[in-house]
Simulated assay, not measured.
Amino acid sequence: MQHRVRAVLLTPNDTMLLIKRIRPGIAPYWVIVGGKIEPSDAGPEEALLREVREEIASEAEIAGLLHTIQTDDERQDFYLATVDKWSFEDRTGPEFSQEGRGEYLLEEIPLTTEALDAVNLLPQDFATVLRGAVERGILPATR
């Protein structure tokens, strides 16, 4: 089973960081920073911190596990985390240099239901969970 970790990255501006994916022949969509756990990672949280370093050249502080989505062949753990600064230009993840992967754009999205409704955040199951957390005021309270 593939095990992935994702970070809902909250910023000091009460926004969150999302990656907009633009790929040929596919409508743009947004994803949360993260990736698969590697054999060299000591555990899920260490993998998450590594992914944040690779994808946005930042150091995150993990607040806790928000949600898990599990299917027969994949598990995705979604954590809440905070970052104070980042540099998308200094990213080092291997996916960014692979030919044919399309564009990756880092965007700050306000923590509002309107902002979440304006993007095609995938996976949609998690987008629904995240929207509910914003409606209940859970996310800004973690900073």
Rank of each mutant, 00 (worst) to 15 (best):
M1Y: 09
Q2F: 15
Q2L: 15
H3M: 10
V5C: 06
V5M: 01
V5I: 04
R6S: 07
L9T: 13
N13R: 14
D14A: 09
D14W: 04
T15M: 09
T15K: 12
T15C: 13
K20Q: 11
R21W: 06
R21T: 06
I22P: 12
I22N: 15
I22R: 15
A27D: 06
P28E: 01
W30K: 03
V31A: 10
V31I: 12
V31N: 10
I32V: 14
I32T: 13
G34K: 09
G35N: 00
G35F: 00
I37Y: 02
S40W: 09
D41G: 05
G43H: 04
P44W: 01
E45G: 05
E45I: 02
A47D: 03
L48S: 01
L48T: 04
L49Y: 03
R50P: 10
V52E: 00
E54G: 08
I56V: 05
A57T: 05
A57D: 11
S58W: 06
A60W: 07
E61F: 07
I62S: 02
I62M: 04
I62V: 14
L66C: 09
L66Y: 10
H67C: 11
D73Y: 10
E74Y: 07
E74C: 04
Q76A: 14
D77A: 04
D77G: 04
F78M: 05
L80R: 03
V83T: 02
V83S: 09
D84W: 05
D84V: 13
D84P: 08
E89Q: 13
D90I: 07
R91A: 03
R91P: 05
T92W: 05
P94T: 12
P94K: 04
E95H: 15
S97W: 14
Q98N: 10
R101P: 11
G102K: 10
E103L: 15
E103M: 15
E108W: 06
E108M: 08
T112K: 02
E114S: 03
A115Q: 00
L116S: 09
L116R: 06
A118P: 02
V119C: 07
V119Q: 07
N120A: 12
N120P: 07
L121R: 06
L122Y: 11
P123E: 02
A127P: 12
A127D: 13
R131K: 10
A133C: 08
E135A: 12
E135L: 09
G137D: 03
I138C: 06
L139P: 00
L139G: 00
P140C: 05
P140V: 00
A141G: 04
T142N: 11
